[in-house]
């Protein structure tokens, strides 16, 4: 219980300061909405292949997370509070806290952007449950890996470009499987025959969390 409340302290602090500035959420949402509008303007109703639609949705979500997730630690570094965290918190406490913050951010963005996407592309998802599980388990893996990478990038230069470069190859498996599973969920026939895709995403999430928290200590402590 003690540990849980220590993690909650980190989350609480970040939620408060994000609530005041709304910087990360606003920039991610603005990016998503802009790119969504650009994509639907340029393609209109011509994209009817579910797999292509799924790919477009995930490209938008992926790049918006490339913009908003690195902020978790870049902000701490830039505001000079990284050392405060080091002096106050255990590494795993910080990792779990920041991961949950990133997960919340990603969930809010996905929950707003996907319905918009479905409306603009005139899709009524036949299997919303499958899609939601796909998005949720992909988001967990994504936020675990991005949290670790955010801590890496915070200590480097040229973070804005470095982050997607580092993230893309590592997140590739999640990305491909998420596109595949989302594509299946947009087809009329039942996608549950492909539930091994969900198992895959869940495994990736578990490895991401365990590996991330193991490696985080080396990034966080000098």
């Amino acid at each position: 219980m003690n540990y849980v409340s220590k993690v909650l302290a980190v989350i609480d602090k970040d939620v408060r300061s994000e609530y005041r500035s709304k910087y990360a959420l606003n920039s991610a949402l603005l990016f998503c909405v802009t790119s969504l509008v650009v994509v639907s303007f340029s393609l209109g109703g011509s994209v009817t292949d579910p797999r292509l639609q799924a790919a477009l949705l995930w490209i938008i979500l992926f790049f918006s997370s490339m913009m908003s997730l690195p902020r978790a630690f870049v902000k701490e570094q830039d505001c000079g509070t990284m050392n405060t965290l080091r002096l106050t918190c255990e590494p795993s406490q910080v990792f779990i806290g920041k991961m949950i913050i990133n997960l919340l951010l990603l969930s809010v963005v996905t929950a707003i952007v996907s319905p918009l996407f479905f409306i603009l592309f005139n899709i009524s998802p036949p299997h919303p449950g499958f899609f939601i599980i796909t998005a949720a388990s992909a988001a967990v893996g994504l936020s675990a890996v991005c949290t670790l990478l955010s801590a890496i990038v915070a200590q480097a230069r040229a973070r804005g470009t470095l982050f997607p470069v580092l993230a893309f190859p590592v997140l590739m498996p999640v990305f491909m499987v998420a596109v595949e599973a989302t594509g299946k969920s947009l087809l009329p026939q039942s996608p549950w025959a492909n539930s091994q895709l969900l198992v895959f995403l869940a495994c990736y999430a578990v490895v991401g969390i365990v590996g991330g928290s193991l490696l985080f200590e080396f990034v966080f402590n000098e």
Binding site: L148, V170, M172, G211
Partner: peptide, 8 residues
């Protein structure tokens, strides 16, 4: 980290 992703 990259090697964790490779098996996947």
């Amino acid at each position: 980290l990259a090697s964790f992703a490779m098996p996947f």
